[in-house]
Nucleic acid binder design. Sequence first.
RNA 1: GGUGGGGUAGCUCAGCUGGUUAGAGCGCAGGACUCAUAAUCCUGAGGUCGGGAGUUCAAGUCUCCCUCCCACUACCA
Length: 572
Amino acid sequence: MSDTPKRILITSALPYINGVKHLGNLAGSMLPADIYARVQRLLGHEVLYICATDEHGTPAELAAAEAGLSVKVYCDRMYEAQCEAGAAFDLSYDWFGRSSGDATAALTQHFSSVLERNGLIEARTSKQVYSNADGRYLPDRYVEGTCPNCGFEKARGDQCDNCGKLLDPVDLIDPYSAVSGSRDVEIRETEHLYLKQSEMSGRLRDWVEGQTSWPPLATSIALKWLDEGLRDRSITRDLEWGIPVVDENGDPRPGFDGKVYYVWFDAPIAYIGATQDWASETSGDWGRWWRTDQGADDVEYVQFMGKDNVAFHTLSFPTTLMGSGEPWKLVDTLKAFNWVTWYGGKFSTSQKRGVFMDQAIDLAPSDAWRWHLMANAPEGSDAAFTWEEFQTSVNSDLANVLGNFVNRITKYAGSKFDGVVPEGGVSGGHEDWVIAEIGHRLPMMIAHFDAREFRKAFAEMRAIWAAGNEYLTRAAPWTHYKADPDQAAVGVRMGLNLAALFGVIAQPVIPRAASKILDALGVPDDRRRWDFDGWADALPAGHAVAAPDMLFAKIEDTDIAEWTERFEGGGE
RNA sequence: GGUGGGGUAGCUCAGCUGGUUAGAGCGCAGGACUCAUAAUCCUGAGGUCGGGAGUUCAAGUCUCCCUCCCACUACCA
């Protein structure tokens, strides 16, 4: 099925370090990237799937303080939790790193000094709110006060929630710290580095307009920002937790004690840093993936992210890479997702709305979540999660259509044919039908996966499973068993090979159940790749098969009722 | 306010550059089958494609107006 092997670099947007992510985060970047990576591996391509935690910034500092931990210790713990959550959902990262690692720090400082030498970084003085009580500068959103436009008393420093106007925190009337509530705040002048994105807008626009494989969601967001005019961004912050600021020679920068690079400058650089960490742990060659002068020319780089991340991946990070003047690999294709909503509303950590990865895995196995979330991926628009639809996905698609198919054919083979693939008989019209059906649908499914059209790919996979049930109804080996055992043998043989095929195609999506199916059927490793030539004879006559243990437990109405109550699903 | 995405069968959604009786899954109704986790298979009912106007031989599919929902709006990631 696959032509010449490709080399595919895959990254999913870095999950922020604070806490375990909710289902929306999972469905919007890590899970689709994982499935895409698994598909491409099965197709025989060389894949490197990199992700990492994004650890710097104010929220991490504040959360650590609240937990009474040092930021470092807090991040260590959260990193472990995210590793566990990722493993629980079978995310097949080639490397899951941390933006707080040494490699990312060195790269960030490198880019900073190179960009400054290229005239793309300069120091400017700005006004920031400093809280004496908290002993820190406050990011815009952590300053609250009275809106100068509408008089709303709890306006945030970046925007007023009442009138919607964008604000500058220094304009707030009676400002106070949202961290401590203290009104002992003052405005101080502070020096920061600015990345002169405006000077790059011409090159960026040429580059963006030259892209042919970006989805409209990505292109339109990027062009919108370019049309409005890129603003120069401050890339440093008054924080302790982060990467120290350097000058154009890479030396510690005078006057920048207590300042670090802004998370959004270093976070995407962590894609490269994490790859370097991967390389040093696995004796891999990171330059072969990231440097076009070191073999990355033929790499296809695919990024997965939520729509909120598009601008950073299409403009900010490319500014860093292109502005360096060095031969870095730029993204080729992006897949941007909308949001998974919780009964139409937003998932919210603070209000405990929604389900988080660690909770989800206690309710249902990872396969169930993987299937449901991506079968209903928020591709065209936001997609609502409801318990009822989750139940339908699991019970109907997985338990009934796939699980029951595998169960019925393997049980039947066990009871009537001694648990071996029977020989004898001649294929006929029913077999021709199902072979044609599969031959038609399989390439479409693969094409949809290749195009990262997950809903369509999943619908096709389900249709392939359903074709197995339809085939068994048509062939009905049980009606032939007594009068014409050979006729029955044809049906069972085909049925078992269909089950093997279903296991093979299910691997990237529901890896655990797929392994159970393939193990029970004794499918050898070299027949598990996505190379479907001769699939109908993959299991030869005489090959021993067993019925797997129950593949998918059904979700009962009582479960739904309990979960709905526990998670306040739908209730506003 | 600006920008973007939506408003298509009861529900969740497909419908590319306009063209025969608008599709899928779930749900529902009827039937078939009995190998299987009361699973499966078939058939059927169900939509004036948010509202209005326009362009066209022809519009869910293009243009304009109106309306409703959602997201984003750059120092929160």
